[in-house]
Write a protein that binds this DNA or RNA. Sequence first.
DNA 1: GCGACAG
DNA 2: ATCTTGTCGC
Length: 226
Amino acid sequence: METPPFPKPESLEAALALQRALAQRVVLEGSLEGVRLLAALDASHKKGKPLVAVAVLYHLERGPLFVGRGKVPEEELFPYIPGLLSFREAPAYLEALRHLPEAPEALLVDGQGIAHPRGLGIASHLGVHLDLPSVGVAKSLLFGRPEAPLPQEAGSAVRLLSPQGQPLGYAYRSRTGVRPLFVSPGHRVGLEEALAFVRRLPTRFRLPEPLRLAHLEAGRALGALD
DNA sequence: GCGACAG
DNA sequence: ATCTTGTCGC
């Protein structure tokens, strides 16, 4: 698929300003009910090596179809700063997506959607950048708090609220006895619809299968570097 | 000033 | 993200 270039911010202030501008473009409505072809994104990095990203093209009925890879040399990497993750990882994701044989109908990203201090987690940023529906699935919390204790049963969810009480997404128990995941809409999808989409994904372990495969492939690709 | 803090 | 052995538990 085609992917527009992703300019590296000149400063921290420029990055924050860009986030605030792009956050205004996020659309929080839409259903992913008809989506069958998605791309799951994850990255792996180790000091002294490039950051490696993987895009797994995944069909809900046929399973994994293709793996696209991308990397960014360590010297060119934006530093990891909580809240600015997309500036570090998105360039590698875009390169990985560029290698896919066809465009996905939606993105599933390892990280936050709108559950972010400025409403633009990496899932939202990529969604707006590519004008694609997107959903964020994070393994830990960045912003917001669950409004109630999360039941232990697989499939249970409680809303994630901002400090001002606005709903941002969900704490979600994908399997009994595992730590919660944090699901939030990225772009062109509603709050509840984002959760419904994640619930529709096959989940053998804690992570939805497409993301788990992307995670495995990213680690594999990092280790296979010369 | 003191914590919190995706990957 | 990664560094890391054994260990607790299903």
